[in-house]
Computed example of a mutant assay.
Amino acid sequence: MDRNLGTPGLAFMKMHGLGNDFVVIDRRAGGPAVTPALARALGDRHRGVGFDQLAVIDRDADADAALTFFNADGSLSSACGNATRCIARFLMDETGSQALRLRTERGVLIAEDAGGGLTRVNMGVPLLAWDQVPLAQAMDTLHLPIAGDPVATGMGNPHCTFFVEDAEAVDLERLGPEYEHHPLYPQRTNVEFVQVLSRDEIRLRIWERGTGITLASGSCSCAAAVAAARRGLTGRRVTVRVDGGVLEIDWREDGVWMTGPTAHVFDGTLSVAWLETLG
């Protein structure tokens, strides 16, 4: 379906997964390229639309669709789990399919209807070697030489996971940007603070690379669950409680599966006049 047919400007959708919100631009029928400048302008919650990530849907010869993700600062993100689930739900509703293959920079991800209005996606096998995360030099990713003894994990994007006694007491605004730009992470990093509630439940608070504090994050939830399991603090299947709600993470042999709700909030159109201000 051409979402721009007969409509001036640029059509978009607003979606969220547990308050982790996205602008989605569907380019399967064509349309202008999405640039970092457009992503930054759209991401401004006062002068644009506002989002945690921007997702672009394109056609793909060997998958149901190809997805590209931008952070609010205009930088590219290789993975965005909640946006992948939201778009998968949109495409499954559109086509009537129960499962999809979606190409991302992370590779081709499998998404499925999990029943009860929930959608799950396989975020792929976690990357545990230092050069896969990536880190700046060779080291044990299970115990980084950073105060607080965090764990490094790659989920197609880099993660730094701290285990704390009280996640609510963490000063995210101060610590998030400090660790995002830590010199051990040449591509910057997402930062997670995890409180282990039981062998099958964790509390998670999130600072996303290029965006800041978010209510939820799929890749961060996966990385936190993997880090907790590697440390022996939980099993490989856990409930993750984020600020925006609950995700179920299951680290299987074929990858890390994430299940949760999605919401398609509204459709809109960026005006020609606003687009022209971008040059």
Rank of each mutant, 00 (worst) to 15 (best):
A273T: 13
F22G: 09
L128V: 11
F12A: 05
R27F: 09
T259I: 00
V49I: 15
A167F: 02
H264Y: 13
S97L: 15
S75F: 07
M13H: 13
D131A: 09
A33W: 00
G81R: 07
E173D: 14
L76R: 14
V226D: 04
G74P: 09
T269N: 14
V265A: 09
N122A: 05
Q132W: 04
S78R: 10
L100K: 08
G212R: 07
P134T: 01
R174C: 10
C80R: 01
K14T: 08
S78K: 10
S75M: 10
A37W: 06
G268L: 03
P177A: 08
Y179Q: 14
R3I: 15
F69R: 01
R103C: 08
T211A: 11
P158G: 08
Q132E: 15
R231S: 00
A11M: 12
S219P: 03
A136F: 03
D2Q: 08
A167M: 00
A114R: 07
L67T: 06
S77A: 14
R203P: 06
A63P: 04
E94H: 05
H264K: 12
N20G: 08
V133I: 15
D113A: 06
G244P: 08
L172K: 07
P145V: 14
G268M: 02
A147N: 15
Q195D: 02
R241M: 04
C220G: 12
G116K: 00
A169C: 07
G218H: 05
F12T: 12
P150C: 00
F193K: 00
L175C: 06
G115M: 04
I110Q: 14
E201S: 14
T262A: 09
A229W: 11
G116L: 02
A136E: 12
V226W: 06
N157Q: 04
G235W: 01
V164E: 04
I206D: 02
G96N: 07
V265G: 03
I110M: 13
D254Q: 02
V240L: 00
I202T: 04
L278Y: 07
R231Y: 01
M92P: 01
E248Q: 11
R230N: 11
M13L: 14
